[in-house]
């Protein structure tokens, strides 16, 4: 009996790499996102790479009504249920400054949308007494910075939510892992000013799989970001507020 992985935000580049990794272990995958054509292409790819079964489901994290069919499908899967969250959006901070109402969407995409989904999934996982939840946050959530503090705030909220979910589901044998990527070479960072310690989607997916295998709680990818953020988090606020990093 194969594991089932529900992938929220299945069109993201890191999700694609992670799904390929899961497919090669023979998992069943439920791809959830908005670009149906793209997910259908990924589904065929994952079949060829060894997935036991692949489903494609429409998901709009801003609309909880789209969660129901996905949760129903998950309930009908045998074996362990697992979920991985790759959703998020990062409008330019200047665009948000011009239209602050965009903040709601950013928070929904990165935090409240996936949190509402996971909150509905959690009882199912508790009953089955196993499986894993992977939540992709960001190093941007570790400290609010000039360049992207709205995005950072959403990711910080999600990280705190993940920490609580870990506290809850850990009691039922569910492994909850928070992933904090630094910059990853994807469409989201393409063409932005060069960023330090950039990693690739494949390397990030590899780190996630390794973290799952080792039962880690919080991982950074690339790993160097754990050290970088340790330093950044510990800069005293009177100094930090004057920095633009």
């Amino acid at each position: 009996m194969s594991d089932t992985w529900i992938i929220l935000g299945a069109t993201s580049a890191i999700a694609r790499a992670f799904m390929r990794d899961r497919a090669e272990t023979g998992a069943t995958l439920i791809l959830c996102g908005r670009d149906m054509d793209d997910m259908k292409a990924s589904a065929a790819d994952l079949h060829a790479r060894g997935a036991a079964d692949v489903h494609v489901m429409a998901l709009d994290v801003r609309n909880a009504k789209t969660f129901t069919p996905i949760l129903d499908l998950a309930a009908n899967q045998h074996g362990m249920l697992n979920a991985a969250v790759f959703t998020g959006s990062m409008p330019d901070q200047a665009v948000i400054d011009a239209d602050p109402s965009l903040i709601d969407g950013v928070i929904m995409d990165s935090f409240t949308g996936p949190a509402q989904f996971l909150q509905r999934l959690a009882p199912m996982m508790e009953v089955r007494g196993g499986g894993a939840v992977v939540g992709v946050g960001s190093v941007a959530g570790d400290r609010g910075r000039l360049g992207n503090y709205v995005y950072g705030a959403a990711k910080a909220g999600f990280a705190t939510y993940m920490s609580g979910l870990r506290n809850r589901l850990g009691r039922s044998g569910v492994h909850v892992m928070t992933v904090k990527p630094g910059p990853v070479d994807t469409a989201m960072t393409w063409g932005l000013d060069s960023m330090p310690f950039m990693t690739t989607p494949d390397a990030a997916a590899h780190d996630i799989s390794k973290g799952l295998r080792k039962g880690r709680n919080v991982i950074y990818t690339a790993g160097i970001w754990r050290l970088v953020m340790l330093v950044i988090r510990n800069v005293p606020e009177p100094i930090f507020k004057k920095l633009s990093i």
């Binding site: 054509d37 793209d38 994807t186 469409a187 063409g191």
Partner: peptide, 27 residues
């Protein structure tokens, strides 16, 4: 962003070009 300005070359690296590159992830 759609376009990234790069200097790039073929495998031989003797000739280079500078221009904008798009790298779509979806059809």
């Amino acid at each position: 962003m759609t376009w990234k300005t790069c200097t790039y070359s073929g495998w031989g690296r003797a000739l280079t070009a500078t221009g904008d590159i798009a790298r779509p992830e979806r059809a």
